[in-house]
Amino acid sequence: MKTLLGILLMIAIWLSCIPEARAMGDTHLVPCQDSAAFITRMENAPEGYYFDQPYQAYADNLLCGDDGLPHLQLRFDRAIDIAIPFGIFFYFAGFVGWSGRSYLIASKRRSKPEETEIFIDIPLAIQSFAKGLLWPLLAFKELSTGQLTAKDSELSVSPR
């Protein structure tokens, strides 16, 4: 409980001390169709579908810097473009990790745990995958009960 309170206090202090960044007011990016360097790059590009189509799309939709190259501007109204793929990746990575972890924990309870690591027990693997789908809830449950982390007395310390 003290750890959770410490983390919440740290986040509250961090959020209150960081000044808000404004990227929209003093940006050096201009629409690509108005950038002289981008237009020069577009005119010097070879003819063909694989050059014309992307350059036309960049000119219509993206912002370019002084170098004439398209840049993506990070703004809070576009944060969903990053949040959704990150959330999907985070959930999938947790699913894979939790499924493997639950399979190894369950296989150690068997009579021959080495065999279940070499020869995959399909019913046990399916059960582990089903548990993996609910990994955020199971992780929170194990974290709150103390099963997820090891106690300090269980950790080995290097003699150095």
Rank of each mutant, 00 (worst) to 15 (best):
A45K: 06
I18P: 00
Y103T: 03
I7K: 01
E115C: 01
C64S: 05
F89C: 03
A150M: 10
K108N: 13
I105Y: 11
I118G: 02
L148I: 04
F95W: 15
L133D: 00
A23K: 03
P159S: 10
D121N: 12
A45I: 08
P54E: 13
K141Q: 15
D52T: 14
V96H: 02
D34Q: 12
I120P: 01
D81A: 08
F140D: 02
A106R: 13
I18E: 09
Q127Y: 02
E47A: 11
T27K: 01
S99T: 15
W14V: 07
G6K: 12
Y55G: 10
I7H: 01
K112T: 08
A37K: 06
M42K: 10
K112Y: 06
A36V: 11
I118T: 11
T3L: 15
F92Y: 15
I82Y: 15
D67Y: 03
A57P: 01
S111P: 02
A21T: 11
L69G: 01
A36T: 12
F129K: 03
A59H: 02
E47N: 09
L143V: 05
R75E: 14
P19M: 01
Q56E: 14
A83M: 12
L133M: 09
P19R: 08
I88H: 00
D60N: 11
G6V: 05
Y103P: 04
G6S: 15
K131A: 10
D60T: 07
F119P: 00
M1E: 13
S16C: 02
I18W: 08
G25P: 04
Q73M: 11
G97I: 04
L134F: 13
D52Q: 13
S16L: 07
Y58E: 12
V157D: 03
E117S: 10
P85T: 03
G94Y: 02
Y103G: 03
I39A: 06
W98H: 15
P136I: 02
W135Y: 15
T149E: 07
S158A: 05
E117P: 00
C17E: 05
Y103D: 04
G146A: 10
R101G: 10
N61A: 12
Q127L: 05
R41F: 05
A139I: 03
